[in-house]
Amino acid sequence: MIYSISIECLQIAFVLGAAPLFVGWVRMLKCWAHGRASAGLLQPYRDIYKLFYKDVTIARNASWIFRAAPYITFGACVLAGGIIPVISTDLPLSLSADVIALVAVFAIARFFTALAGMDAGTAFGGMGSSREMMVASLAEPAMLMSVFTISLVAGSTTLSQMVHVSLSSPLVLRPSLAFALLAFALVAIAETGRIPVDNPATHLELTMIHEAMVLEYSGRHLALIEWAGEMKLFLFASLGVALFFPWGMAGVYNPLMLPVAFVSLAAKLAAIGAAIVLVETRLAKMRIFHVPEFLGIAFILATLGMLSFFMLE
């Protein structure tokens, strides 16, 4: 029990610490791909540090929701970091929320961010909230469908159990998982606000989704939101790893595997970062009303995954 709790704490600390690094890695690769000089791996840390020390400016009309939303978002993301098996399956928190509840935990964060976007009373905030909720309401079914496919294979919806099953069963080629992976990748792009759905670097009014919601934030609130956003990207990447490529993760009471788990996770995340950069460099951001079609494709893929689980396996 003490071992699992310490693993749990270790993992949460790791997620908190490594998330900006992952974003830094993606940004650095992107700069290289564009032929620019990069600000270095550690720039996200510097940004967060700087924001924490800045004073806060709040819109006159903003209510307590505006001030509470960053904390709730941050809290939800940290909790998600304790639920998803990142380095080990030996997580007590993993039992307190299965994959459906995990999706809902991210939904709480989104709910409050969207409310905060409407709180200040700007046109942009409302626009961002409306768009974010549109993307989310279409992404969530696709996400659940894709996850359901894996839980059908594993016979469980508890994440650590799902990982445990795929680690302990022999390697089988499963077309259903391939479909689910594709669908998951599309949904993850939409959920974490990457190109081609949303552009995390833009501040051009008409193309923003997520940035429009958090436009009014500053200082420590913005720092929390940024950090939570970085964790969300990191967590979606590690959720993908846990669901589809868990090999190398430490099992129950297996401290010797931990170094291996860290190394393999780092390698996988580095590869995922490279894939993100490849996609983002090749594709342009799509029109907002093509997003439903994009997510529709994700949904169809997830459905096909589930169908092929029944048809072909």
């Binding site: 089988v172 077309p175 259903s176 079609e293 096909l304």
Partner: peptide, 19 residues
Amino acid sequence: QINSVLAALILLTAFGLLM
């Protein structure tokens, strides 16, 4: 297994043609 993966891919391309 390989055959079912290929079948899945054929189905995927069939859907790809539709979209």
